[in-house]
């Protein structure tokens, strides 16, 4: 145990995701040795992110204004919405440059063990967005795990009666990989989701 303030810092850092006690200690001593100006800049950035960043009132993505950059972009396709669990998923999909529609960030997935039900996710907001009939396709891109699949099923059931096409991201083999190295579950999924070859 270290003197009060230092230990405080280590404890606080240790609460961050992916930071164990050893790493927390390393970061703390790095900060102690660092230039005061650098540390001030970091502290400022931390406070600023809580102060200034808000969530887009349309899609729920992180934004610096009322609406996020993507929702404000008039060139984006208004007819397609891609549903994801977290803002970081938006970043991942944006990197592909494949998708030109807009997003909807749920803020998690349905998981009764963690006490997360549909009302805790931004599903009501999604329904409001779909109400005017402009959206023709909903692409569900929740994580390919049990909770993500359950959320996908739930949304599909809710949205299908509205006449919107509901699709799910394909899951299967990684591109550039070798078939023999795929695990059985992934390979099994790939078989399930096989498609007709166009020639």
């Amino acid at each position: 145990m270290y003197e009060g303030v230092v230990q405080n810092l280590i404890d606080e850092l240790g609460l961050l995701p992916g930071v164990g006690p050893k790493s927390a200690q390393r970061i703390a001593f790095h900060l102690l040795a660092a230039d005061p100006a650098d540390v001030k800049r970091l502290a400022h950035a931390l406070l600023e992110v809580k102060d200034k960043v808000r969530f887009c009132r349309v899609c729920g993505n992180v934004a610096s204004e009322e609406d996020c950059r993507i929702c404000r972009d008039a060139r984006r396709d208004l007819h397609v919405i891609c549903v994801v669990e977290e803002p970081k998923d938006v970043v991942a999909i944006e990197k592909t440059r494949e998708f030109r529609g807009r997003y909807h960030v749920l803020g998690g997935a349905i998981s009764p063990i963690d006490g997360v039900g549909p009302d805790d996710l931004r599903i009501r907001e999604l329904m409001t967005r779909l109400a005017d009939g402009q959206v023709t396709e909903l692409i569900i891109a929740t994580d390919p795990n049990l909770e993500g699949e359950a959320t996908a099923t739930y949304l599909a059931r809710l949205v299908k009666p509205m006449g919107v096409r509901v699709t799910r991201l394909a899951s299967g083999l990684p591109v550039g990989g070798d078939l023999e190295y795929a695990d059985e579950v992934t390979l099994g999924r790939a078989f399930e989701g096989r498609r007709l070859l166009d020639v």
């Binding site: 009764p112 006490g115 039900g117 549909p118 009302d119 805790d120 359950a150 739930y154 059931r157």
Partner: peptide, 14 residues
Amino acid sequence: SMGAGDVLSTLDVW
């Protein structure tokens, strides 16, 4: 935070 209606509609999914 989970209401009764919420529970039953997610039960179908599970």
